Amino acid sequence: MPHAPLQTEFAPGQWVSHPQHPEWGAGQVQSVVGHRVTVNFEHRGKVLINAALVALDIQP
């Protein structure tokens, strides 16, 4: 049975944080391709996140 493509609630320009790495600070979403979200964090730099495995917190 084929699976539907994973839709994420993330969009370029959004601010997020990584729940397991608060020391990385806030991160801005750079791109979203399927479940792959590239985020540029204040204290870590660019990180490729698998949104199917990590529930990023959306910042207000």
Rank of each mutant, 00 (worst) to 15 (best):
5 P>G: 08
24 W>A: 01
5 P>D: 09
26 A>E: 00
5 P>T: 06
46 K>H: 08
4 A>V: 05
55 A>E: 14
14 Q>G: 10
18 H>A: 12
11 A>D: 02
20 Q>N: 10
6 L>P: 08
59 Q>W: 15
27 G>K: 05
9 E>I: 14
7 Q>E: 11
56 L>E: 04
42 E>V: 13
1 M>K: 05
47 V>T: 06
45 G>H: 01
39 V>M: 04
14 Q>V: 13
34 G>H: 08
41 F>S: 06
40 N>E: 00
24 W>E: 06
32 V>T: 03
26 A>S: 15
38 T>N: 00
7 Q>C: 12
29 V>C: 10
37 V>E: 03
60 P>L: 15
37 V>D: 04
50 N>L: 03
49 I>S: 08
8 T>C: 00
15 W>K: 05
37 V>N: 09
56 L>Y: 04
56 L>I: 00
10 F>W: 02
7 Q>I: 15
46 K>E: 15
13 G>W: 01
58 I>R: 14
10 F>T: 09
1 M>F: 09
27 G>P: 06
43 H>L: 13
28 Q>H: 11
43 H>F: 12
26 A>Q: 04
40 N>F: 08
52 A>L: 02
6 L>A: 07
20 Q>V: 08
53 L>F: 03
49 I>P: 08
9 E>R: 09
39 V>K: 00
23 E>Y: 02
47 V>A: 09
44 R>E: 07
34 G>E: 12
7 Q>F: 04
16 V>F: 12
24 W>V: 01
17 S>C: 02
58 I>F: 13
25 G>R: 03
54 V>F: 03
59 Q>D: 15
48 L>D: 09
22 P>I: 10
24 W>Q: 01
21 H>L: 06
33 V>T: 15
19 P>A: 06
38 T>R: 09
4 A>H: 02
41 F>G: 12
41 F>V: 04
1 M>W: 07
57 D>V: 15
24 W>T: 04
17 S>Y: 01
24 W>H: 00
43 H>I: 10
37 V>S: 11
9 E>C: 13
1 M>T: 03
12 P>V: 10
46 K>V: 11
40 N>C: 05
18 H>I: 02
